[in-house]
Amino acid sequence: MRSPLNIKRGPILLTVILGCLILFPVFSPSPYLIHIITLIFIWSYVSTAWSYMGRFGLVSLGHGAFLGTGAYITALLFNFFNLSPWIGMLIGASGAVFLAAVLGYACFRSGIIGDYFALVTLAVGELVALSIIAMREITGGSLGFTLRSLGNSPLYFQFGSKVYFYYISLLFLLFALYLWKRIDKSKMQKALKAIGEDEVAASSVGINIIRHKMAIFIISAFLTGIGGVLYAQYITYLNPHTLSGVTVSLAIPFKAILGGMFNIWGPAIGTAMIVSLEEYIRVSYGTKFVGVSEVVYGIALITLIIFLPKGLYGTVLEIFHKRQRSAETIT
């Protein structure tokens, strides 16, 4: 699907938006706004990585497993062995990749697809959360633990100002979007599209189903693992429920599905809407409605999947293109 951002005005509009985002902190707005936008960047990055596979019908409801694995391995290596998270994140993300490889191979080899794949991943996400809680001695169990503070120490991924995190997470998000484009131009994208539609037909023309699914699952898990590190370094506190439980595992796909996982901008737009909405509810209603966002999530998710499977942004695009096409045929 072509996005209006790709037609003529596309590059200009994109440059303007990017320019605004880069210049935004310069005008020293409130740290609160910087904080919210940083959160949007981090979760956009994660939900974009989720959509790498989600858009080909590989719906994972357990990405918290990779988020948590990446974040905990990295943070524990730092707290106990003083290993810089810049290096640790590669080890953490490799842990996420290992998990994805084992899980993926087991599922794809035995033909677990669709809803069944979603259910298996959901269980694995919770399994990782429970394992973290069980290893109370080192992980602090369900109370979580705090990163050792070094003050401003860029070599150890700790900064005195939130602005650094703003720019770093923006960079990561841009990388994830760039990788999306690269995947779109690759042979792998065609193979995955075919697999997503009809595995039997795809394999009959010589497409290796397991290899392609493994590849995209591993890429997605690697980026998600890094995303966990990003979030943990920013918040400086790790908790199994915010990093790998069912709630976060469901929140990631929800953001992507809301925006529309078939379009490169969909996950980011969905994330911006959700994070803003959550903040709005939190600020205006405080703790009166704790848990209400989960209820809203559930209802909205079901409604979306039934009525707008392409997500909000995806649906807007579709209407836009239909208008354009009918305008073209008239003129």
């Binding site: 065609k190 599209k193 075919a194 539609e197 009809d198 037909a201």
Partner: peptide
């Protein structure tokens, strides 16, 4: 027949050429 419905006819056949004889 099992065409891939989201791909054009030409793209369907291209799949065979791209992946079929590696």
């Amino acid at each position: 027949p099992r065409p891939l419905k989201d791909l054009t006819v030409v793209e369907n056949v291209m799949l065979g050429a791209l992946f079929g004889d590696s």
